[in-house]
Design a protein around this nucleic acid. Structure first.
Lengths: 153, 153
DNA sequence: ATGACATTGTTGCTCGGTCAACTATTCCCG
DNA sequence: CGGGAATAGTTGACCGAGCAACAATGTCAT
């Protein structure tokens, strides 16, 4: 059993600032989207992923991977978005198990409507507080952490 | 209506790396705590807050503030922790509406048992990937964001 | 070709969390 | 002092997400 290397004061402060800042940030973004456009943050992100995909469609599995959630979560989310009219399910013709989630016109419109406010909030609450050096360090550091936590095969 | 200042490529990458890295990190920490000690990350944090409070107790409201969740969330969480035997409710004698959540011996023991593994995971998944400069920038940047999002009166 | 195994998406169950409403208490100002 | 407003904590209704189980389909070695 190795000796535990506890966090020193500086590490503690870093950890707390990061955790709490992140929690507040996500809450703020969620509230902004919900009140200004009637979309949750998670739904917004799903729409973004679809809008960036070729043909505005993605396999359910790929959507789950892209959004870092479970497959069942995506199933329910897509049902929700379908009910709202922003997404439709399209069967896959090369894989009869498969399903595409495809962005509808209404979904694209919703995204276009919601995006400016969201980007504004991201700027106001995050990027406006970052120096270029902050940004560079954050980008590289989290990219490293991401690579460590989800190694690409 | 002001012109929208969209995120440039570098900002996009930063935003994605940060969001995705954070999501993976929290998932990893949650899984580690759950499988190694049978505690969720949120419950673990509540125990930590109590352990750091004078007398190992905190008013429900203060616990809610400290953990950035709603009061009802804390009510249910404390009930959960009480059922596990890690926390007890103690009436407040100077405010008859008030309630303290107080860490029990068993709760302190649970925390002591879970902490090394958790700290190890935080190191492995985060601090081991940060240079001193990374850490300094992250600490200051998120402290600024936090101050902006929850101004202290 | 065929049989074992993997993968896809959905569902039932359950859990944790929020919002709004409620009761009990305290605060504060006329 | 008294009465309206604020605050503390809890609860009910609801929602979103995860896990395990499942049927359907695909893959691959022999």
């Amino acid at each position: 059993m190795a000796e535990t290397r506890w966090l020193d004061d500086d590490e503690q402060e870093t950890w707390r600032a990061y955790l709490e800042g992140t929690r507040l940030l996500i809450q703020a973004l969620d509230r902004q989207l919900e009140t200004d456009s009637g979309v949750s943050f998670t739904d917004y992100e799903l729409l973004v992923h679809l809008s960036e995909a070729p043909g505005h469609r993605l396999r359910m599995r790929d959507l789950a991977d892209a959004s870092f959630t479970s497959r069942s979560g995506v199933t329910r989310a897509v049902t929700r978005l379908e009910d709202a009219g922003w997404v439709r399910r399209v069967e896959c013709d090369d894989d009869r198990r498969g399903m595409h989630a495809e962005l509808t016109e209404a979904g694209a419109a919703k995204l276009a409507e919601a995006a400016p406010g969201h980007v504004g909030a991201v700027r106001e609450h995050m990027f406006d507080h970052l120096s270029p050096a902050d940004r560079a360090h954050i980008k590289d550091a989290y990219a490293r952490m991401r690579a460590h936590l989800r190694p690409t095969p």
